[in-house]
Write a protein that binds this DNA or RNA. Sequence first.
DNA 1: ACGCCCGCCTGTAAGC
DNA 2: TGCTTACAGGCGGGCG
Length: 307
Amino acid sequence: MPELPEVETLRQDLSREVVGKKVKSVAVSNGRSVRRHPSAKHFRALLEGRTIKSVSRLGKYLLLTLDNKHTLVVHLGMSGQLLRVKSAKEPKPKHTHVVIAFTQAGELRYVDPRTFGEMFVSSPQTDDPKAPGTNGSSSSSSLPPGMGGGDGLALRRQVPELAHLGFDPIEDVMSWDRFGLLLRQRHVALKTLLMDQQFVAGIGNLYSDEILFGAGLRYDRPSDQLSATEVRRLYRAMVETLADAIKHRGSTLVDEQYRDLFGEAGDYQGSHQVYNREGQSCRRCRNAIVRAKTAGRSTFYCEHCQV
DNA sequence: ACGCCCGCCTGTAAGC
DNA sequence: TGCTTACAGGCGGGCG
């Protein structure tokens, strides 16, 4: 399942490979992948003739900014892949639902067996196009500014459909104090909170387990009952685990199909501490990793290292 | 407010 | 060996 590290790897690849390219034609062979649009034709018309100006990321969403300020948004869901091929002649894998051909030759293909993912073209928010600064809502917001792929606030305005997303753990830096404050505003299990996209955007089942191991905290610890040290450990583990996974170009598991833009597997699965390691020995204390069920989902953790 | 379940999907693998 | 069932889970929605 592509989560933040996998999507960020794709963002880096895309910004080198498709920025500056102009869309020649778009072919949609499964309308479900563009289900936000009234029709495939509608989706195509918004893309054809446009040039890709930049590539950003918000949580698990890829944002390709177009030359008319519209944005091509891609969400990979459970099984989505974005593949760049040099020639249209290369054989199309099964479940290729969208093909974007560029005028400079080459294609961007969207493949998604389970069709949980989607693509759509978003129009920027048309709120108050008059003088800027009159109501002062631009820079005084509660969200901190982003650093890399783009300003988180600007991106949220650019794509109103993603306004509900919480802070991005890599782009939006925040103090331990503020993180602790946010944790105390809720009373939920830590794993639930890490996976809540409205709280923090980009973390799914795999990385929430890895982060909680890194922090030495159990998945079911209530979010409003952490000591200052534990808050700090959790924040640090979140940022470091994700950054480390990005360095390794994400996780490609045996039963999964995450691939980068060129079809290459990620490398981080070898560094997993708990995920999918039920019965295997903890790399830190040698006790067996345990599997639990929460809300019908699997959770892996070490009963000795996580308290 | 929160936990939990369902439906949406297909491919893989375990079970009988 | 072949069929059936369970499982994988992001996300939105509903229910208690």
